[in-house]
Simulated scan of single mutants.
Amino acid sequence: MSLLWRILAILFLALAIVGVVLPLLPTVPFLLLAAWCAGRGWPALEQWLLGHPRYGHSLREWRRGQVVSRRAKWAASVSMAFGALVLQFAPVPLAARIAVPVVMLIVSIWLWRRPEQ
């Protein structure tokens, strides 16, 4: 079972790394998942993630009580709005052009309802 948690942790960490480069793919949610999986099967990776100089604070705050900083809320909201705008010009089905921004709006509302401190 430990091997499964390690594989999932690596998968989510890889997605988070890709999210650093691609503006439409989130980074922190994948880091949250990676830390959660690592906590079940790879404590050393979990500690490394929690101690990371850039993302560790956000991970620790989330664990403390689903706390999300205002700066992170703004960054996520602007990124989602930009992604929704870009999607309108992409060659995708109309259903995707409607559904994806609706989901992003729901996520944004949920995000802004998280505590900040």
Rank of each mutant, 00 (worst) to 15 (best):
L111H: 02
R64G: 10
G39C: 04
A38H: 11
M104E: 10
A81P: 03
S69I: 06
R97M: 13
A95P: 00
S2R: 10
G83C: 09
V78Q: 10
R114Q: 15
C37S: 13
P115W: 04
Q66M: 06
P93Q: 00
P115R: 07
T27P: 05
F89P: 07
L49V: 01
V18E: 00
G83V: 10
I106T: 06
W112Y: 00
P101I: 08
S69Y: 11
V28W: 01
C37W: 06
G51V: 04
E46V: 04
L45M: 07
L3H: 12
S108C: 13
A81D: 00
E46K: 14
W48Q: 13
A44G: 03
L22D: 08
S2V: 03
L50N: 01
V67L: 06
W36Y: 13
I109C: 08
P26F: 11
R60A: 06
S79T: 13
G19W: 05
V102E: 00
I106P: 00
V18K: 00
L3W: 11
L59M: 10
E46G: 09
L8P: 08
F89M: 08
M1A: 15
W42G: 03
L11R: 09
V100W: 00
L49D: 01
F89V: 12
H52W: 10
A95C: 06
M1I: 12
M104F: 15
P53K: 00
G83N: 04
I10A: 14
H57Y: 13
P26Y: 10
A90P: 00
Q117V: 15
P23M: 11
S2I: 11
L33H: 04
V21L: 09
A75N: 04
V107R: 02
P93G: 15
E61N: 12
A9W: 03
P115C: 07
E116D: 13
P23S: 12
W36F: 11
L31I: 02
V103G: 06
